[in-house]
Design a protein around this nucleic acid. Structure first.
Lengths: 367, 367
DNA sequence: TCGCTGAACCGTAACGGTTCAGACACCCAG
DNA sequence: CTGGGTGTCTGAACCGTTACGGTTCAGCGA
């Protein structure tokens, strides 16, 4: 096949050196240390390179020799493409990319197939370090990352892993502030719609056991924040319905809302552990012509741009900043004596979706 | 400093082999070709690896030998972080990530500093190929990519580069359909707000020379589509005001709209070459209490989710699909006889922001 | 002329693997 | 007993580069 001639190997540093009658070191220096050889010789080397089609030192060989890959790996459990769907993840990525860019490092998106045990992608990633974004602590990919002899920074989850830095926010405190906002308004009968709590699909009520066994500490903490806030006004947590969704999407929020409100029509507020879910609840309310917040208060968590535009009451967390800090933590030279933990502040954003609870018991008299 | 002992080199394949008294080949086979050695020996190797903390074959060394980096590089001219801001770019990334994921390839975001001549990042990228997303044809980073002896796929721009595959849409035809929609409604006095046409900042009217010298063919084609459509009803292109914005953001669209409408208060429609800009024009209209489409018709291009929610009349292009095709083009094995060109279809989306032109000459009688 | 210096260049040894052509035993059919 | 597989394991070459510790040599002051 004629194509064979197309894959002719490009010239190497060695062949170029031979052609010129100089040592390989000299050619290498022509690229990496111009001050180590005379200008005329350097010009000759570069000219010969152009003539022979030598594309410059091979990046992989260079990486092997210098022991630097020049890139950081990003690992998330969800399908790689999911990262571009979730606005919170996108914000994080933007911040991380910013930090990498500034340090001249590449950002390698590691292709992990969700719910798959194949961790070879983690083994094959040529990186100087990993950033792990919000995964379960028993995730096999994460365990594979830990085995790699490179520094690792975790964002959000898992928490408290030995030897790795972590950046996150105080989810519990953030949710506590939000819960207090609602109890101050007078809400007592509230429901919760949360994201995936642990491995295994569970779309529906999250039992006390399910909550206790949560392997996603972020979700656990957010629930705990709500619990704390309600406890302050004497509402018992066991009376609070918590529904869980496996998928994280507006549609999932919509369905969750329908389910939650059908089972508990007396609720005056639905608290979501993410804005995306809350947007779904908003949509459900719109579908049913429920006035927000007059008939139902709806809140989220994250503070994504879309939620802001919708006027959602939520807890804003600095997602971009989280990404940047994660990158800096990883790339920053410094004595890595002990693992560092960075907790960024959250901010309660009171929008137009929270108000006083309605006085009538149910949405429709017919119920 | 005590830290020095922390950076102890991890065990290598060779050291593991020596420890076990077997050849390096055998250790290598234990990882890569389990069928090449007996099960007991393989178990011994793996056990010793765990005991000695051997993390498995080094990815970089492996890449050097196998001549496969296991990743594709993505190059965009804008700051890396910009890619996560622009919804069209995000959609493209999602599709590309999807394709990579499926092929088990990593996706390396190459850190190019915008408007900077330093192309070392391109030289240092350990990748098996490049995807170039919508850059100027004279972009130094792009030229550096071309010098690398790896396959390259271009999305959108530049067009017609020898030896590289390309995926894009028929921007001109898409815009033509949109222009016809407007002329059919009766519009004759239209203005255009477009994105960056060439290197060098130009915020304001784009002269005929500026348009002719555009180094962003996509923008050029979209303008040409509008011109074609207007020509069909006898509107001379030289009478059509075209304003350009360097930044691509809602704010830029807002400012551009203010400028354009101040200079040409008789316009009945503003066509934007992107949804983001159009959203800015919409915002401007809202700020001035202009009724859309009663007083002003506004259109975009791209078909991003946010535009859809806003009911924007626009031309939808399959951004996710574009990303996926780009990835497939690059990763697909096959005889690369001649460069391939894929053109994806566009679709006119008539929303609620386009209507018949108003009858009164100007927005306010006072003008 | 000698000793010394600094600039310019070079040879060798890694870097950490993969691969391929054997070597060696062992077993089974003929 | 022999010839030919088959299953295991090994030796050595190779991937393309950079780090390290030289060597060479022109120039210069005494």
């Amino acid at each position: 096949m004629a194509g064979a001639s197309n894959v002719r190997r490009p010239a190497t540093l060695a062949s170029l050196a031979a052609e010129l009658g100089v040592s390989r070191t000299t050619v290498s220096n022509a690229y990496n240390r111009p001050d180590q050889l005379s200008a005329p010789l350097r010009a000759r080397v570069l000219e010969a390179a152009r003539r022979l089609g030598y594309p410059g030192p091979d990046p992989v060989a260079r990486s092997l020799r210098t022991r630097k890959a020049g890139a950081v790996g990003l690992m998330l459990t969800e399908a790689l493409s999911y990262a571009f769907r979730d606005p919170a993840a996108t914000g994080f990525l933007e911040g991380l990319a910013l930090a990498c860019e500034q340090a001249g490092q590449g950002l390698l998106l590691v292709p992990v197939s969700p719910e798959q045990v194949d961790v070879t992608a983690v083994h094959r990633a040529s990186v100087d370090g990993f950033v792990v974004y919000s995964v379960r602590e028993d995730d096999p990919h994460f365990l594979a990352v830990l085995e790699r002899p490179v520094p690792t920074v975790v964002c959000d989850q898992p928490m408290g892993v030995e030897g790795v830095d972590r950046v996150g926010v105080d989810d519990r405190a953030g949710m506590l502030a939000l819960a207090r906002h609602l109890t101050t308004l007078g809400h007592r009968r509230v429901g919760v719609l949360c994201m995936r709590l642990a491995a295994g699909r569970n779309d529906g009520p999250a039992s006390a056991e399910r909550q206790a066994g949560a392997t996603y500490p972020v979700q656990r903490d957010r629930l705990a924040g709500i619990r704390d806030g309600l406890a302050e006004v004497g509402v018992d947590w066991s009376d609070v319905p918590v529904h869980e969704r496996f998928e994280h999407s507006v549609t999932a929020g919509q369905e969750g809302a329908a389910e939650l409100l059908a089972a508990h029509p007396d609720l005056t507020a639905v608290l979501c552990t993410s804005d995306i879910l809350a947007l779904g609840v908003l949509r459900h309310a719109a579908d049913r012509d429920l006035a927000v917040p007059e008939q139902l208060t709806i809140t989220g968590f994250d503070g994504v741009p879309e939620a802001e535009r919708a006027g959602l009451t939520t807890v804003r967390q600095p997602v971009l900043e989280k990404g940047r800090v994660a990158g800096e933590l990883l790339l920053e030279r410094g004595d890595r004596n002990r693992p560092r933990r960075v907790t960024l502040p959250t901010e309660l954003v009171v929008g137009s979706t929270s108000g006083k609870p309605r006085v009538d018991q149910r949405f429709f008299s017919g119920w």
